[in-house]
Amino acid sequence: MQDFAYHAPPTVAEAIALFAADPEGSRYLAGGTDLFLALEHGSSAVRSVIDLKAIPGLDGIAVQPDGGHRLGALLPMDDLMRDRAIRTNYRALAESAEVVGGPPIRNRATLGGNLCNASPAADTAVPLVAFMAMAVLSSASGGRAIPVVRLWEAPGRTVLRPGELMTAIELPPPLPASASTFERLTRSAMDIALLSASAVISLNDDGTCRLVTLALGAVAPTVISIPEAGEVLRDTNCDDAALARVVKAVIETVRPIDDIRASAEYRREMAGVLAKRALARAYAIAIEPAGITR
């Protein structure tokens, strides 16, 4: 690993300015759990590491006036998974944070880092897509917010412009009569996901589905959402026939790869299995009178 300059600016503006000084050679440092490996094994020369942890206010959870939640990009996984409001209102997100490595990783790895690393297997990315979260980005030219599902172009590549900094994730207000689930398949307990699925379902008063979202991880170059889930399941009781149609759509949509962890063929089949499980479980929780969000 070549040596580099280290900066710990106290403000977002200064961080962005430091990055702008050498856009090619700069990297933002959040939790470091991915960056360190990239520095060790990466091919491109890193000349400047800009540590974001000295910037106050990027690691908290705030309730928005509309009932939505704003999560700082530097929020560590361990804080995220333990937060009562998140566990209650966005359960799938808490569950996804729980499986990002073991405790030492979860104490460092951040939500923003997990998203900006742009792995299609990133655990928290999948429920965030299902929750239709927005990513708040800052750059010298100002700020913007984009849907999390639009964050990635390819494995390891985001749509962020050089130097653009993710500062927060905004979760919409929890839906009434809703539930969320996260499902994940691994080779052993401590493993990155072979694939993952997250579903969010809210119900009409008659117990049929009102709004359904489904996201899948590690079955395509980026985390993807399956809009057919919402279309097919709307106003249904999430019955087997409807689920079978969603599974068919999933299997037709996914574009998994072969790698040493699993074959594309297995991932494709499992995408259907996990999608069905995530949806069926979400529906079962939502319909249950003691459901977590009622």
Binding site: K53, G102, I105, N107, R108
Partner: peptide
């Protein structure tokens, strides 16, 4: 040195971390 084994785990301000994945300056 990849944050997989926990052999280098220490407490940083009381929190368990893998010291191999942290810059000393952090």
């Amino acid at each position: 040195e990849e944050g997989e084994c926990g052999g280098c785990a220490v407490l940083l301000d009381g929190r368990l971390v893998d010291s191999c994945l942290i810059l000393a300056l952090e």
